[in-house]
């Protein structure tokens, strides 16, 4: 089966600091993958390279079958870890932008998600609380019928209620046969929605395994394993 995300010996440095070190990775369709790592382990760099916002120094990348760029962006939906809207925008404006830029935007799905997230089109995006902004971000990302979703820290720094809402939305609104890659360090909250996890440490992949296999082999939760892997960090 065709892979939705492929990294082949990908490296990236910012000055002297290595962000990604020889990353090789292959993720197929119909999966929810947890991209785990402590702060500075390379999660965001990997996401940005996959979505075409950053170019790798070396190695090859395929997202949804294409080199990251205009073609791949048509079927890859990326949610950055910081809000992307301008200060004058209402919630409705942000969705209109999404509609104008992406052919796979689904207005029906967007409306259902707005209701689900208790967001109103008239609200000013920049004056929403942090939790509501995260809800809007995830709404924007999932309002498209993409084949690959890249969500960078979707529940970072939000209250438990919004967290719950975002997790529920992920389970209710994901597209079958599409793949979602979610980066997080809040492993305990999210591990049940993953089928696979990739752990990054110091810019390299230290583990890529199915979560149920980890539980069977080690008798440990993913959260427990995560804490052991990053104990010295």
């Amino acid at each position: 089966m065709e892979q939705l995300l492929e990294f082949q010996s990908v490296s990236k440095s910012y000055g002297k600091r290595t962000a990604l070190r020889d990353v090789t990775l292959s993720i197929g369709p119909g999966r929810i993958v947890g991209l785990l790592g402590s702060n500075g382990s390379g999660k965001t760099t990997l996401m940005r390279i996959a979505s075409g916002l950053t170019r790798p120094d070396s190695g090859t990348v395929r997202a949804s079958g294409h080199e990251p760029g205009p073609v791949s962006k048509a079927s890859v939906s990326f949610m950055p870890d910081k809000p992307v809207f301008e200060s004058w925008m209402t919630v409705g404006d942000t969705l209109d932008f999404q509609r104008d830029f992406f052919a796979d935007y689904d207005p029906g799905k967007a409306s259902r998600m707005l209701d689900f997230m208790k967001l109103s089109r008239k609200d000013k995006a920049s004056s929403l609380s942090k939790g509501m902004q995260e809800r809007l971000q995830i709404t924007l990302a999932l309002s498209r019928r993409a084949s690959l979703y890249l969500l960078d820290e979707p529940i970072g720094g939000v209250d438990p209620v919004s967290r719950e809402h975002i997790l529920n939305a992920l389970m209710d609104f994901y597209e079958e046969d599409s793949t979602i890659v979610v980066s997080t360090h809040l492993v305990a909250d999210m591990e049940r929605i993953f089928d696979t996890v990739v752990m990054l440490k110091g810019g390299g992949v230290v583990l890529h395994e199915e979560v149920e296999q980890i539980r069977i082999d080690s008798g440990k939760s993913i959260d427990q394993l995560f804490k052991e892997v990053y104990a010295e960090c």
């Binding site: 119909g30 929810i32 529920n168 049940r192 089928d195």
Partner: peptide, 17 residues
């Protein structure tokens, strides 16, 4: 699979299994 995944908030592949 879809109903149960959404109700239990568990990965659909896990439900499939």
């Amino acid at each position: 699979v879809r109903e149960l995944a959404s109700e239990l908030k568990i990965n659909p592949n896990t439900i499939q299994r």
